[in-house]
Design a protein around this nucleic acid. Sequence first.
DNA 1: GTGAATGCAAAACCTTTGCAACTGG
DNA 2: CCAGTTGCAAAGGTTTTGCATTCAC
Lengths: 149, 149
Amino acid sequence: MPSPTRPASKPTGLECRMAVLGADVRLTPHRREVFDTLAASTDHPTALDIFTRIKDRSPGISLATVYNCLDHLTSAGLIKQVHLERGQSRYCANLQEHVHFHCETCGKVIDAHPAADFDPARFWILPKGTKVTRMDIAIHGTCEACANK
Amino acid sequence: MPSPTRPASKPTGLECRMAVLGADVRLTPHRREVFDTLAASTDHPTALDIFTRIKDRSPGISLATVYNCLDHLTSAGLIKQVHLERGQSRYCANLQEHVHFHCETCGKVIDAHPAADFDPARFWILPKGTKVTRMDIAIHGTCEACANK
DNA sequence: GTGAATGCAAAACCTTTGCAACTGG
DNA sequence: CCAGTTGCAAAGGTTTTGCATTCAC
């Protein structure tokens, strides 16, 4: 008899990702929804964007809960926070090594992946004793559509 | 008689930098102060930090003016905005190619310079037609002092 | 059962705006 | 002279907090 204790809701990428990463966060419907919404987005939404998208489905959710979920998912390493502009943060469920291309004209954010396998930290002289946990690389410019206007 | 029209304040690095870069911003005492304060700082201050430091000398200045000056200096390319954390922006007068190391324990920010001359954009596959204007690279981790605690 | 997560609303914080007065070029 | 800059105060937007209630484990 296969796993009789599994809850009624269908399993999401979140459980799978938690297992792979060995992350330990308490699994609640809202955290699942925040994660699923982010994972289904290609546009690096802000907390308010995520809140708005979820509210259509689950009217009960509050913005504070979205922030709470995003913070927990971020510190568990299940999603990433992205800082591109003044005033607001964006989020990203893509954990592959990548950089963010940010169009300064239309605001669009596009993931760009490394051309070859290489160790970026090798290219900069960091102070002795420094421990690196992650790198955020943002490339600002103009996307093709805006460049052709 | 040497330059009788020169104002009482001593010339700063700002005029020099404007000349080198061909930047055109109206030169006011506050813009000079904001630039000088930032140029004299090694800690990548926030707008409020800069406001506080200037207020000791020039009690008349307002926070809105500091933001205004920072925005003008940034769009003229005379300083850079740095986004490392949620909620607040930092500023930086170092225009050399460099990355920011951010200690997640004590919040300290350290400039790190490239080990060799290389074109970072070459390492990522950007969408066709993309025009790059600048790159922001943030390396997050733990500084030596915090690692030894 | 129990500690953790949530909703709500208010607060705190960062940043922008409007307008009258002033000033650099 | 006059467009652009400033101070002030208020508004706007984002993020955090406190507390009673609810829920996952």
